[in-house]
Amino acid sequence: MPFITKKLFSPVRQMALSFLMNELGLSRSEGQRLIARGRLSQNGSVMDDQFGFIEGDCEFICFEPDTRGFKPMFVANDFVIYDKPSGLSVHPHSRQSPYTLNDEIKHQFGDEANATHRIDQETSGLVLVSRHKKSESVLKRLFSERAITKRYLAMVKGCVEHPIDIQEPLYRKDHPNLLISMVVKVDPKGKPAHTVINPLRYFPEHDMTLVEASPLTGRTHQIRVHLFHVKHPIIGDPVYGPTEENVIRFIKKELSPIERMEIGGSTRLLLHAHSLEFEYENEVYKVESEKDFVKECFEAMGISQ
């Protein structure tokens, strides 16, 4: 597990921040951030005051990357791009989270490297990663200014004959069950959201269509909710389409692959972040996934092409 507890010892009374900077080689800002997150404790009590003092035995919770040798598909001086498989989270959700893409990012490119955006654990495809703080700031600004063009591929139910321009506001559902409150829906109270759908290929024998989805805004679950709204849900979506009971079972990780296949027609969400296009330091980059998404769809659906 990436998060481990280190036993440390301060031989003299000293400021907690100075101790961590000297003991672990942390920068001042990194030490302040980790203390504020409650990573340092003594005698069972969390030390969350950077100006506090520490002496004697103490414990520090730190992140130690657990590499499995997963390499990026594209490497530049200031950033890299990974082609993430479905099922792998970008960041750990808690200190108990198992292996994530963040393990490889930190292991291969150091503590300053960071994913500049997120895609869902269930979604496969391209993740843009900065190699240092300067490029992180630039790339995140490009995302916030919508200067990075993202295109996704999705296999959806039914026949999509013509392009669809979807402009429906999205709202996080208010529900007494906290798990269900993660679900997003089309609602006038929501934030503006805009997705353009273009059909690429119809498979009449399975009544499904491969589409390209271009999100012009960046709302949570935007493509998934918009496609569900226009009656072309993504095959294998465990949240938008199944019953509330099965949504809860999925979120609790209680659904087996066989059950997922029976409920949604696939063992995974058939959504793939296929390409990224942006300008960085006067150079235009257009990177496309090398994965055969159609082949992966058929495999996940348990059918032969």
Rank of each mutant, 00 (worst) to 15 (best):
H206M: 06
F250G: 06
V239Y: 13
H226E: 00
I197A: 05
Y171E: 08
P238V: 09
I251R: 05
V156C: 09
F63H: 03
C297G: 03
A113T: 13
T67Y: 01
K157N: 14
F109K: 05
P72N: 02
G302K: 03
R249N: 09
G52E: 09
S10H: 06
K7I: 06
G265M: 00
S124V: 12
G44E: 04
I148V: 13
E288S: 11
V75F: 00
S144P: 12
S181W: 05
H93P: 00
R146L: 03
V284G: 01
D111Q: 08
Y240E: 04
E262P: 08
H93K: 09
V211Y: 03
F9R: 01
L216A: 04
I54Y: 02
S45G: 10
S181R: 14
P92Y: 00
H93Y: 08
L170I: 14
R268S: 10
M155N: 04
I148P: 12
A193I: 09
V287W: 05
P11S: 01
H175F: 04
T5M: 00
T5A: 03
H93W: 03
Y152V: 07
E262H: 07
S275V: 13
F250V: 03
F19M: 01
D187W: 05
A154E: 08
L270I: 09
L142H: 07
V129N: 05
L227Y: 06
V138T: 12
V129Q: 00
Y82C: 09
F278C: 02
F53H: 12
E299Q: 06
L34V: 14
P85N: 00
C58L: 07
P85E: 00
H91E: 11
E277Q: 12
S135F: 05
I263S: 04
P257S: 01
D103W: 00
V46F: 08
I119M: 10
T220S: 12
S137V: 14
R268C: 09
S86R: 09
E288M: 11
L179P: 15
V294E: 14
V138C: 07
V138Y: 08
S45W: 14
I258V: 15
K134R: 04
R151Y: 04
T243Y: 01
M208C: 15
K6R: 11
G87C: 07
V239P: 15
E104V: 13
S214L: 08
A213S: 11
D165K: 02
L270M: 09
P215G: 02
D48R: 08
F51M: 10
D120N: 09
D57P: 13
T195Y: 07
R146K: 12
A300N: 02
L227E: 08
E112F: 10
A113G: 10
K189H: 11
E145I: 06
V186L: 00
I223Y: 06
S214V: 15
R201S: 12
S27A: 02
R219L: 06
L153R: 10
A147I: 00
K185A: 11
S18P: 01
D187M: 01
E296R: 04
